[in-house]
Nucleic acid binder design. Sequence first.
DNA 1: TCTGGGGTCCTAGGACCC
DNA 2: TCTGGGGTCCTAGGACCC
Length: 398
Amino acid sequence: MLQQSTQGVTPAETVVMHVDMDCFYVSVERLLDPSLNGLPVAVGGSPDGRGVVSSASYEARRFGVRSAMPMGQAMRLCPQLVVVRGSYGMYAKHSAALAEIFRRYAPVVRMASQDEAYLDLTGTGRLYGTPLVAAERLRRDVLAETRLPCSIGIGSNRLVAKVASDLCKPKGLLWVPPGSEERFLAPLPIERIPGVGHRIAERLHAIGARRVGDVVTLGAATLDKHFGEHGRDLYSRCSGVSSAHVTEHEPAKSIGAEETFDRDCSDAEVLDASLSALSEKVASRLRAEGIVASTITLKYRFHDFETHTAATTLAYPVDDELAILEAARGLLAAKWGGRRAIRLLGVTTSGLTESSAQLDLLAEEGREKRDRLHAALDRIRGKHGYGGIRRASSEGTS
DNA sequence: TCTGGGGTCCTAGGACCC
DNA sequence: TCTGGGGTCCTAGGACCC
């Protein structure tokens, strides 16, 4: 599987690298507090409340602790677990530093999230040698400059590179040479394929497919019958076919915020205060990014996890909390009967465009004054966080 | 065991227009 | 008086990812 090539890479040969940081949040926390080294650590919410695990150290994983697991459950599995609240600002800083290193190695870099990236190495063979040599150097640079460990998968397309990095964690390197994609994937459990989650895996198991190779054996027609359009996609991915095209980061399509209450809530005033805080948060981000939104979506979840969304599209795009709040309020009033207690509220904006594009549409006098007020509010929030300042209607949510 | 918060993409139906 | 087909926009829900 893992082969050391003796020749350089020909320019025409597509080489995609997937760099994935090893338990990124935990690794950053260990930089901040080295006493965490060697201990089972989980970054995430409180074990007493409704928090979940965001990132678990390998010591913790040995006890069965996993991402997205309720923290209380993690504590039961591993009583000596050290729980750390996230230092999210630090993660963003380190992520930016990583992106800079990656850009030295590839002309096109796609940060897929804070802790993983796709690099298109096609044509860089003369500069860095074989993919494995380049990967080894990159990993050394990352470790030397950030002291953060990572794993790297290399393949002829993004899917193969990603599966490879996943497989060699932690601190691994794995190259899948061109032509061996299908052989590489076939013996793996289908859950290893990105996009195959819990539900789809279950349905595949039901028709007798447990390994990636089983899916290929079933054939495109059978998958099409069971999964429709998604089936063809599934088939090609299991065959190792996927886009090799790496593109730079694209502008966000939606910006939102949500809040899960410590206890389910049916108090209309508390819910309204939450909507107000969420609207402020979203509006503040929209303005910081210089964009406006035309669609407002309200999300609400009941105690049994039944989740609904309701959306409305405004006549013109907005970036201010009152307009967003008003829309969200209206949706809640129209949809929520007031009987069932709510465990989560969310406000998401979409239909995003650059705000400069609508300047002439909104050339009212009040605009400038309002902008100055918002700028002042954003500055204060930037300094003190969202608890620093709130309108009167947001009181009671903190 | 009882499920966060930030997102993306896909599907499907209905409205509306030509 | 009954009715096609295509395209686009909007809404709702669901699966998935980190």
